[in-house]
Design a protein around this nucleic acid. Sequence first.
DNA 1: ACCTGAACACCGTTCAAGT
DNA 2: ACCTGAACACCGTTCAAGT
Lengths: 203, 203
Amino acid sequence: MSTSDSKSYHHGDLRQALLETTRQMIAEEGVEGVTMRGLAQRIGVSRTAPYRHFENKAALLAAVAQEGFEELIKHLRCARTADPTLSPIIRFEKMGMSYVQFAIAQPTAYRLMYGADAVRAEDHPEVREVVRRTLDELIEMIQECKAAGFLKTYHPRDVGMTVWSACHGLSLLLIDQHLQIDNVDQLIERVTRIVRVGLEGER
Amino acid sequence: MSTSDSKSYHHGDLRQALLETTRQMIAEEGVEGVTMRGLAQRIGVSRTAPYRHFENKAALLAAVAQEGFEELIKHLRCARTADPTLSPIIRFEKMGMSYVQFAIAQPTAYRLMYGADAVRAEDHPEVREVVRRTLDELIEMIQECKAAGFLKTYHPRDVGMTVWSACHGLSLLLIDQHLQIDNVDQLIERVTRIVRVGLEGER
DNA sequence: ACCTGAACACCGTTCAAGT
DNA sequence: ACCTGAACACCGTTCAAGT
């Protein structure tokens, strides 16, 4: 009677299986390795079954992207609230590092989230919404900084967009291996510190 | 007898026509709108003709990406050397603005350059090389800043990567319309200024 | 040398038909 | 309700054959 009672004729929870398996395929061979046919076959279901749950491939990928952003937002919030005794500027810096570390830990998924290949956010309101909330998470931290007396002359949105840009750009350059370096963590630290010192210096 | 004497049985300069038409198609409908078959048809040549000049679709797109980077490098050099009477830090800032303006002026081409869809730079040494030269162009400007007494304690590569990250990230966020703003130029100015002030403050 | 037509092995998606 | 098989309209790429 519940949603998990069947494993007979119906799959049980095909929708969840589709999302899960898509994530796996993305992790294994990138977004371009995901095909609707291969996906169905791997789950053991007919080729057209997935269309019962997602209008098309783009809608499926958008759902996966959305979940990715939810995860990212959780990570950012965690970094922001982990240790309230730290200076807000330092927590801001940790948030930036946390962002980049999240991105490079799951490179193909991060690429998908920003629609490199298939998901154009403009066509998916749910994606637009989580993207907006990602920026909001950064802006919230900036408000804390302002409340503590930092960043007096800057607009929170401008600072948020600056930090977001730096994090996003660094993440993609690292993912695409455009930066030939030995110590990734050190680079992330140095980049975020340059931005942090810049913001701090304005105090 | 020259290369442009024929328009009969051979196309004349099919290679150039392929690059040119690919650029057009990218500008019109994005990278995903480019198909080898459609490309050939548009030029008025058989489906397999393009393979005489490019091993496959990826190689063709890589060539277009490479040309895009050459253009970008030219723009950056132009901004760097335009007015030597300006402070190097200010020219650095102008370079950043020039980068983002170049990117958003040709959104789909910029996306292709960074291999969002098809061109994985790791498979194309020529692309790796122009990407490297793009970073070098930024680092050159940083050396000038150092020579003028700025940025004393920073490593040029770290500063270069930071600025590159911010420019790249801002470009993509703007291209993907994740930043809902009315005045794009103003935002570019504010973002680059925050980074510039940060760098300057360290003097 | 350069181009062609036919063919192969893939796609995403649709639709009438089954349980 | 949910799933299926056959079919359609696309791909990129290959290969023997033409000029």
